[in-house]
Every structure is written in C-alpha cells, then in structure tokens.
C-alpha cells in the first residue's frame, strides 16, 4: 500500500520509491536518487504521464506539464513534488 501523502521533505523520497515500485514492479534498490527514469528505470513517455496522473490522484495537486517534462532523475521527481507540496 502506498502510504499517506508525505508531510515533510524527508518523507518524499521513500514515498516516491514505493509508488515507482508498485506501479512499475521496479526493484526498490534500483530507485536511487541519481537513477534516470528513462535510461535506468525503463520508464517510457506513456508511463511518465501515468505517473503524473498518479501523483495528482494522491496529492490532489497538479504538476505543471513543463515541470514534469523536464524531470529526468528520481531526485528531479522528489524536488518537483517538494515544490508542489509546499504550496
């Protein structure tokens, strides 16, 4: 089960790891902060949109498409979500 929405910045990364693991059956150990979604984790453009939809479902907030398009690494995802949850 995906835990509740992260409350602090520190909680975001493990929360993202859980989501990526559940959605794409990715090995948790591969989901490092440096991992590139597309080249290291084999996520394609269709998956990326599904991921954005999932984030919106869970947080109730929408990532701007241009922000999401610039995301490459897991760290980028964590940062983008951090910015989103602060608002």
């Amino acid at each position: 089960m995906t835990p509740a929405i992260p409350q602090t910045k520190e909680d975001i990364y493990p929360w993202v790891v859980n989501i990526l693991h559940e959605m794409f059956e990715l090995d948790r150990t591969k989901i490092t902060l440096q991992a590139n979604l597309y080249t290291d984790l084999d996520i394609d453009s269709i998956d990326a949109v599904d991921l954005a939809v999932k984030f919106k479902e869970l947080t109730g907030k929408r990532l701007q498409p241009e922000v999401f398009k610039s995301v490459r690494t897991v760290q980028d995802v964590v940062d983008a979500l951090g910015g989103l949850l602060e608002k």
Binding site: M23, F24, E25, I46, D47, D50
Partner: peptide, 8 residues
Amino acid sequence: GSEVLAAR
C-alpha cells in the same frame, strides 16, 4: 491489476 503492469 493495472493497465501499466498489463502492458509490461
């Protein structure tokens, strides 16, 4: 259980 995994 999901379309994402079914496609995989």
